[in-house]
């Protein structure tokens, strides 16, 4: 990203923002509420187009505020369509995030944290080098927070990159980016 400027609703969120994220690195974006963390991630994902500047992002997985998990379908049914993205099975991914026993239950009956885990499981499907995580720790227990850290570390270890907006720190070695100083 070079010289990225974005105004939203007539208010300048950030100007001349620069960020280069190398393979194997994790960057945490910190900043107050409304400082443009989410918008930055959405721009990187290609979900927000009203900006000026250059963005060159690798194929990515995006986990936003909303999990992208349909309440009517079980986690397994939710993830099955994404198996075609590449290696990894939906069942394996759900086992990894600790939803082994819940993978056949309609997601609407799961707790918020369990739904968040199902959203995290999607990251494991398909070989996407860049992960864009928006507050991945919300609703997760201490076990879940450790899980996020492990997933991020494993992904970076395999040469992937992670860009993560968060208020808490993930706890893994990450460079820190501050927005809206």
């Amino acid at each position: 990203m070079t010289d990225l400027t974005c105004t939203r609703g007539g208010r300048k969120l950030f100007g001349s923002f620069e960020l280069t994220l190398d393979a194997g690195r994790c960057a945490e974006i910190h900043g107050a509420n409304g400082s443009g963390k989410s918008t930055l991630l959405r721009i990187a994902a290609g979900l927000f187009a009203d900006y000026s500047g250059e963005v060159d992002a690798a194929p990515c997985h995006y986990l936003g505020h909303r999990n992208g998990i349909s309440a009517l379908l079980s986690p397994l049914e939710n993830l099955k369509p994404f198996e075609r993205l590449g290696p990894g099975s939906a069942q394996g991914a759900l086992d990894r995030v600790g939803l082994h026993n819940e993978c056949e239950v309609p997601s609407g009956q799961l707790s918020q944290g369990q739904q968040r885990r199902a959203g995290l499981a999607r990251l494991l499907l398909g070989d996407r080098p860049l992960w864009l995580l928006d507050e991945p720790l919300t609703a997760l227990d201490s076990d879940g927070r450790r899980l996020v850290r492990e997933l991020v570390e494993a992904h970076c270890g395999q040469g992937g990159a992670v860009l993560c907006a968060t208020h808490q720190t993930l706890g893994c070695s990450a460079c820190e980016v501050r927005l809206g100083a």
Binding site: G46, L47, C60, Y62, R66, R122
Partner: peptide, 13 residues
């Protein structure tokens, strides 16, 4: 429904 639970974002992406 897909819009509200974020599935639509994933579909577009």
């Amino acid at each position: 429904r897909d819009f509200e639970d974020g599935t639509l974002e994933q579909l577009v992406l």
